[in-house]
Each structure stands twice: as C-alpha cells, then as structure tokens.
Simulated scan of single mutants.
Amino acid sequence: MRPEATFATVDERVAALNGRYRHHAARAVFKEALNARETGRVALVSSFGAESVVLLHMVSVDRPSLPVIFVDTEMLFPETLQYQIDVASQLGLTNVQVVKASRTQLALHDPKSDLHKRDTDACCNLRKTEPLEAALTPYDAWITGRKRFQSGTRAKLDFFEAEGDRRIKINPLAHWAPADVQDYMWNNKLPRHPLVAQGYPSIGCAPCTTKVAEGEDPRSGRWRDQDKEECGIHFVDGKIVRGPLNKEDAA
C-alpha cells in the first residue's frame, strides 16, 4: 500500500501521524502504523540486540510476514548471530532478510577488516549504513526500537519522523522507560539476549562494544571514549549522522 496522494510530502504525512497518535500507547502506534495510509510499505529494522525482541514479538502477533531487515556487519558477536536465528524461529517470523556490505566495497575500503581501528564512522557507514539504505529502497517507512531514554540525541524523539524527503521512520517505543521494556519482556516470557546477563545492556559490533559498569549509562559501552553516539543510520536534529568512507570523501 503506497502513501495516499493527499499528503504531498513526507513532512505532511509525519505531522498527520504524530497528531493522530500523539496520545496513543506504543502497542497501538505499532499496530496502526502497519496499516496507516500515510506509511505505505513498511519494514522493521532490527539489530536483534538487547531489547529488540519487544518489537519482534509485536511483529509475530500482528504480522509475522512483515519484512524484518537484519544488517549483519560481519563484526557482530557470535551470540547475536545465534540469537537472531533462535528468536526468528521461536517467534515464527517468516520474512527475516539478512543483508551485508558489498563484497566489492569491502575489498576496496576494508580489505583487512580493520577499518574500525582507524575510522569508526567510516566502518559503520560501509558495513551498516550503506547496506541498510540499499535494503530499505523498496519501502516508504521503517520501524525502529529507539527510545527517548537511550541518549541525549534521542531525548525529543517522536513516534514518527521524516527521513529525508521520501521515507518515514516509526518509533513506537519512543516514550517507553526501561521498566516498560523489561515488563513487556517478562510478561510475554521473551528470550533475552545472552550477553545482557554478562554486562552488555546495549549490544553492537564486537570490536566497538564493551561491558557497562553498574551506574553507567546503558549505552556507554558503545564506542567508549569516542565522541560518537549513533552508528549513522539515524537522523539527529534533522540531519543524518553518518561518516564518509575516507577523509577525502568528507568534502
């Protein structure tokens, strides 16, 4: 289902959606977003990380055939790869699409798989942002698990955001607190990512994710000691945050 022509721009569709669902609960936002005329063709993007199972469970209840895009950066923890397989099977998800970076681009920009040591932004761009952008090409909207409490860049997150001039980003859990996430997982007896119990409340690629000590921000283990909060697939203050493949590309 394509977005209705009545809404000429993405910004207009986002404004209509936020106005309609501003006071709705996360569960209702998720369910209605799958069928709203403004969203068109929708996919869920999931990292199969620490809290991903919440939205994956909602998919399994409302539309098990919904496309679920999983970007395998080929630098993920082995536990994440196994968790992806186990959760998809347990929840009966029938349309998980595993995407990876172009072999040509990897050979050109990261032949030794050590780009993350020199330029984490470029590595994220190569292994996550570009493959995801290609995978999202057929879709008019995509669902994320981002929440306001996760970082300063997400503090004003709305249920719906404009991504450029052609796609909508849907954040059903934007207003959830950590307790809401845990309650949902507990009440629905959902499987936990095995690394959470080992001190990883936020899980990304293995080289750039460290354990988090008690009292630290849950995302402090991501790109520790770097001026970096996002991998590059999300917008901050209306601008997409992503790194160039090399310094010369920055211009």
Rank of each mutant, 00 (worst) to 15 (best):
S202C: 10
Q198M: 10
A251V: 01
R148P: 00
S52C: 06
I69C: 10
D237R: 09
L157V: 02
A5K: 07
V96M: 09
A36V: 05
A107L: 06
H23A: 05
V42Y: 15
E216S: 13
F77R: 10
F7G: 00
Q226T: 11
L115K: 10
D140S: 07
A88D: 07
K247V: 00
G221L: 12
C208F: 15
E79V: 10
D165T: 10
R63I: 01
H116S: 06
D158T: 00
L91E: 02
S202W: 04
D227F: 05
W176D: 02
H234D: 09
L115M: 13
Q150F: 00
V196A: 04
Y83C: 13
G199L: 06
K156N: 11
C124D: 13
L34W: 08
K112N: 09
A141V: 01
V212I: 11
A5S: 04
I85T: 14
R127S: 05
R154G: 04
V181F: 14
P201Q: 09
T137N: 05
S202V: 08
R154C: 04
Q90I: 08
V45H: 00
S113D: 09
R222V: 15
K117Y: 01
F160Y: 15
R146A: 05
D72Y: 11
D86N: 12
S46G: 13
T129I: 14
T120N: 04
Y184W: 09
S220H: 14
L173C: 09
V98S: 13
P218S: 11
T137D: 05
R154T: 01
H116L: 09
D249C: 02
P244A: 08
A36L: 07
V14C: 02
I143Y: 00
R192W: 08
T73I: 15
K112C: 02
I85M: 10
A15V: 00
M185K: 14
S60N: 08
E130A: 09
P172S: 08
A8H: 07
R154W: 03
V54S: 10
R103W: 04
Q182G: 05
D227G: 02
K239S: 07
L157P: 01
D165S: 10
A134N: 04
R63E: 08
R63K: 14
E74M: 15
A36Q: 07
F159V: 00
T120D: 12
E79G: 10
E12L: 01
H23P: 02
G232M: 03
M1E: 08
P194Q: 05
E163L: 12
R118S: 03
P78A: 12
F159I: 01
A15R: 04
I203P: 02
A174Q: 03
T120K: 05
A5I: 06
S46V: 11
S113A: 10
H23S: 05
A107E: 11
R2V: 07
I69W: 02
E38G: 03
E248T: 00
D86I: 03
R37V: 11
A50E: 05
A162F: 05
G145N: 06
F77Y: 12
Y21L: 13
T73P: 15
L136Y: 02
G204I: 14
T9P: 04
I203G: 01
A177E: 10
K117V: 01
A213W: 09
M75V: 07
G204Q: 12
D237S: 08
M58W: 15
V241E: 14
